[in-house]
């Protein structure tokens, strides 16, 4: 008998519901909400409480958090509920959460437990926040349970390997998302806006050069994705340069400039949270508030099927 059984965890969850229902009887019980199973693979010390609580509001989920450590600990798990009281209401809304702790070795036991733990008939999303876990042999079995895999390259040193891995997964037919790609949605959106006006679109043929400035010593995955996407959209390669400008804790795109002999289209971060759009007589600014992890995940959770534009970018890598 394995030490951790899906059935026991489900029983614990049932007990949680009964006791919550009793505690909240006067307020009409609690409202149980579940729209997906979200499996989060994180490192031992990761603090994702706030992110999970945040996404629960619009993506109520059965969240299964798997913490991976380097010691040789056996697999362990516990189940509980996350509740919140929506503003102005008496009834609490609750979601289920299961926390598992595994070592690199005992991760091999994870797939069999997960199979019994998924919320029935609902989509499953696997969020790999600890990319080293992709190297664990049992990960392939975990991925077969998921409709979509989301990886997070931020802060990961071996990001070049990770980019290759994402492209490989895509080739293998897995629906995969990279939060570096999600982080540039608004840059892409503004790029598209530059060319909404037909007269500017007509000048696109003259564009032959792309310069992207970034704040990290190396152009990270986001910068590369952005450049590959622009080339894909235009159907031709541009003279492409990446430059470092400034330095921030995490990489940030500072500017994107498309130009040709007599044209220039630019998006420039003028202040921390403001981006300016410039082209001939056009000048307009847009807010780029700091993106939270939960907002990125929300965008990905809203798209459960394939993302053809990203797939094309990956295929071109």
């Amino acid at each position: 008998m394995p030490a951790v059984q899906a059935e026991k965890l489900l029983q614990q969850l049932d007990e949680v519901w009964v006791s919550l229902g009793k505690q909240q009887e006067e307020a009409g019980g609690v409202l149980r909400a579940c729209a997906i199973t979200l499996i989060a693979v994180v490192d031992e010390a990761a603090d994702i409480g706030e992110t999970l609580a945040d996404i629960m509001h619009d993506n109520p989920s059965r969240a299964i958090v798997i913490r991976i450590s380097d010691d040789g600990r056996p697999l362990s798990a516990r189940a509980f509920a996350q509740c919140w009281m929506p503003f102005g209401r008496r009834q609490q809304i609750c979601c289920e959460q299961v926390e598992m702790a595994a070592s690199s070795a005992s991760f091999a036991d994870v797939p069999s437990v997960l199979r019994g733990l998924l919320a029935p008939d609902l989509p499953v999303v696997l969020w790999v926040r600890h990319p080293d876990a992709l190297k664990l042999p049992a990960m392939a079995a975990v991925m077969t349970l998921a409709h979509k895999v989301v990886v997070e390259p931020r802060g990961y040193e071996d990001w070049k390997w990770l980019m290759d891995e994402v492209a490989r997964l895509n080739r293998a037919g897995i629906v995969v998302a990279d939060l570096a790609w999600t982080r540039i949605t608004r840059w892409r959106d503004l790029t598209a806006r530059l060319f909404d006006a037909p007269e500017r679109r007509a000048q696109l043929a003259q564009v032959d050069r792309l310069v992207i400035e970034h704040s990290s010593p190396e152009p990270g995955p986001a910068v590369r994705y952005l450049a590959a996407w622009i080339a894909n959209c235009l159907g031709r390669r541009l003279d492409t340069r990446f430059h470092q400008a400034g330095s921030t804790k995490y990489w940030q795109i500072q500017s994107v400039v498309l130009s040709g002999p007599s044209v220039e289209f630019a998006l420039r971060r003028t202040e921390h949270q403001v981006v300016q759009m410039q082209a001939a007589s056009l000048e307009s600014c847009t807010l780029f508030p700091q993106l939270k992890e939960a907002e990125l995940l929300r965008e990905e959770l809203a798209i459960l099927g394939p993302d053809p534009v990203f797939q094309k970018v990956l295929a071109a890598q």
């Binding site: 892409r188 959106d189 598209a192 909404d196 959209c233 993302d307």
Partner: peptide, 18 residues
């Protein structure tokens, strides 16, 4: 010519200037 940068899956619908 359509906007080559359009991405209907991710971008909000945009409206023309007026």
């Amino acid at each position: 010519m359509e906007n080559p940068f359009e991405d209907r899956l991710r971008f909000e619908r945009r409206v023309p200037p007026c």
